[in-house]
Simulated scan of single mutants.
Amino acid sequence: MKRIFACLLAAVLLLACAGCGGKKSEAAAEEKTLTGTLDEVKDFMFVVTDQDGTSYALNFEKKPEGLADVSVGDSVTVTYTGELSEIDAFTGTVLRVEQAK
């Protein structure tokens, strides 16, 4: 009885570990870009308006790479992970901000 219980427990642990590992690597690999005009910069977020006039507020905990190199009014390209929405709060991570070419 103890052997059967130990085997079942080992199988459950194996499946739990295998299920958690795949999801993180897929989400981390999906980088997206947004190009538009930098409208506002604060200590914890910035706003970019795209060519269609839609504004997106992107929040951050750590200042993203390149944000200090651009100014309000510049055309920028933002590389990020996660989902953008003009209604809901940004749920991803800003990887870098650079002057648009």
Rank of each mutant, 00 (worst) to 15 (best):
F46P: 02
A57Y: 07
S55D: 06
K42E: 07
G53M: 02
V41D: 10
Y56E: 13
E40L: 14
Q51H: 09
T49A: 02
D52V: 14
E40D: 15
D50I: 05
T37P: 03
K62M: 14
T49N: 03
V47H: 05
L58W: 03
Q51S: 15
T54I: 15
E61Q: 06
T54W: 15
F60E: 03
Y56M: 13
Q51E: 15
V47Y: 09
K42A: 06
T33K: 07
T37W: 11
K62F: 13
Q51M: 15
Y56Q: 12
D39P: 06
D52K: 09
Y56N: 11
T49K: 02
V47C: 09
F46W: 04
T35A: 10
V47R: 05
T37F: 05
K62S: 14
A57D: 08
T33D: 01
G36L: 05
G53E: 13
K62G: 12
T33M: 10
G53A: 13
F46Q: 03
A57C: 14
E31K: 12
L58G: 09
S55A: 13
T54N: 14
V48L: 00
T35Q: 02
V41N: 07
Y56F: 14
T37H: 02
F44C: 02
F46D: 09
E61V: 15
F46S: 05
T33G: 08
G36D: 04
L58R: 01
M45S: 08
F60P: 06
K32T: 11
T33W: 04
F46L: 10
L34R: 12
E31A: 14
K62Q: 15
T33I: 08
G53L: 09
T54A: 13
D43I: 07
F46M: 01
L34C: 04
N59V: 05
Y56S: 11
T37N: 08
G53Y: 04
D43M: 11
T35G: 04
M45W: 13
K62P: 11
Q51R: 12
L34F: 08
E40R: 00
G36T: 09
T37R: 06
E31W: 04
K32W: 00
F44V: 09
V47L: 06
K42C: 11
T33L: 02
K62A: 15
F44K: 01
A57L: 12
L38R: 09
A57P: 12
L38T: 03
F60S: 02
T33Q: 01
G36N: 12
T35K: 07
E40M: 14
F46N: 06
V41Y: 04
Q51W: 11
D50Y: 01
M45Q: 11
N59I: 09
V48Y: 10
E40N: 13
K42T: 13
T49Y: 06
K32I: 01
E31T: 15
T33A: 05
D52P: 07
D43Y: 10
E31C: 11
D52C: 08
S55G: 07
V41F: 02
L34M: 04
V41A: 06
A57N: 09
